[in-house]
Amino acid sequence: MNELLSGLFVKHVTIPELWRLGMLVPLTLSISIVYKTMRCEKLSSVPMARLVLCLMILTCMGLIGVVLLGAFRLLA
């Protein structure tokens, strides 16, 4: 068990190509949870607020990515 646990944090994980962008979702979720937990006065309003913020961040980053891809193709 100890070997399994130490191996978990010592050896790296191979991430499939499809999952590279997917790794953005948990990171965005944790950022939005921490931010909204700080901002919301009532903790009961956090789940909905963090979902909205998470979707907003993902949408904006997606749009920025599309714009940059378009600019890159135009300039290439």
């Binding site: 978990l8 944090f9 010592v10 050896k11 790296h12 994980v13 991430i15 790794m23 948990p26 990171l27 944790s30 949870i33 921490v34 937990t37 903790l43 956090v46």
Partner: peptide
């Protein structure tokens, strides 16, 4: 909430890349 979210994020990073990376 802060403890769970921040700890999970940090150790998820270490688990993905390994502590040496």
């Amino acid at each position: 909430i802060f403890f769970v979210v921040i700890s999970v994020t940090f150790w998820a990073g270490v688990a993905v890349g390994g502590v040496r990376t």
